[in-house]
Every structure is written in C-alpha cells, then in structure tokens.
Amino acid sequence: MAELPPALSGFWVTFSTMFKKVNTEQYPEEKDKYPPEPRFHGRHQLNRHPDGLEKCIGCELCAWACPADAILVQGADNSTDQRFSPGERYGRVYQINYLRCIFCGLCIEACPTRALTMTHDYELADNSREKLIYEKEDLLGPLTQNMVSAPHEMVPGTTEKDYYEGKITEATPEQRAEVAARTDEESEAVR
C-alpha cells in the first residue's frame, strides 16, 4: 500500500481516536461521578457527640503524632458556665495547616476519642497562606438535626463515660433551651 501523505496520516490518528473510550474526567462539572475511594485521606473533621458537644478533649496527641508539625492544639478547662465537651478538658484552639499536612492519617490513629477523622474533601486550594490554616470552626463537623452547638451542658444525669458508651443519642429539650437562650442573648447583645 502506498504511503499516505504525512498530513493525512496525522489526521488519521485524530479520526481514529474519536471512536475510543474517553478517559478525561470532567472536573469540576462532573465531580460527583468520580467519588474518592472509601479510604481516601481528605480534609479533617472534628466530630461531635450526638447532642452537639465536641469530642475533642484538647489532648494534643494528634499534634504530637503529626510528622509534618501541621497541627496546633491548645486545651482548656470546661468551666461551669461554658462546656464544650463532656469531661474536664476541651480543645480551645485547634488548627491544621494544610500547607504542611501530608494526609498521612497518623493524627486520626492517635486520637483517643475519635474526635478527629478524615473526610473525602480534597478541594484544598486557596489563594493565601492564612486561608489554608483551618481553625476549629472550619474543621468542626456539621450540626445535624439532633445536635445543638456547644457550649452547653451535658445531658442531665449523665457522665463522661455515658457519652463514650454511646448512651447519648440526641440533644435534650434542656440543652436546646439553654442554647436557644444563649443565642437570643447574643443576638440581643449584637443589636
């Protein structure tokens, strides 16, 4: 067979490709079509107990475990009028620097209360260094219907242990009332 002229042979490649399976993923338009693998290490999340109290106790073990020194935690005392977690201590400051994080997941393994887990969120790009240091409010898991946001009291009559044994399932009316009163006060103060 006679050789095709070079220009045509080039177009032949183009033409034949039109009938092959497309490998390109249409990110971001079609990102839902391609979810990450189940064990993908994405952005962290600070979990809450079912009533909305934080699971983080500010123990800093995640920070200690971090090989990239990406985590900064400062604990504090739950006081009688401001309770963020069951028990004595909570994480007052919680920062993860995503410019440093290598998503190894050692922090997750170190966490004694399962407060820190990883999500599938991988969209971690931004236009300044400051924005990539995630604060506690950026990392806290979403409030579900059953939760009210801390600070608030523990479920009356329960102990720290009950929380870890999973005996608390949702925020009680007392807790809801407490948080509602607080929010009212705050909005009053803003006004």
Partner: peptide
C-alpha cells in the same frame, strides 16, 4: 498550668 500545654510542646 492546668490543660495549658503538654510536655512535648
């Protein structure tokens, strides 16, 4: 010093 820090910090 309560809860303010950990020795490794």
């Amino acid at each position: 010093y309560r809860f303010r820090s950990r020795p490794f910090d």
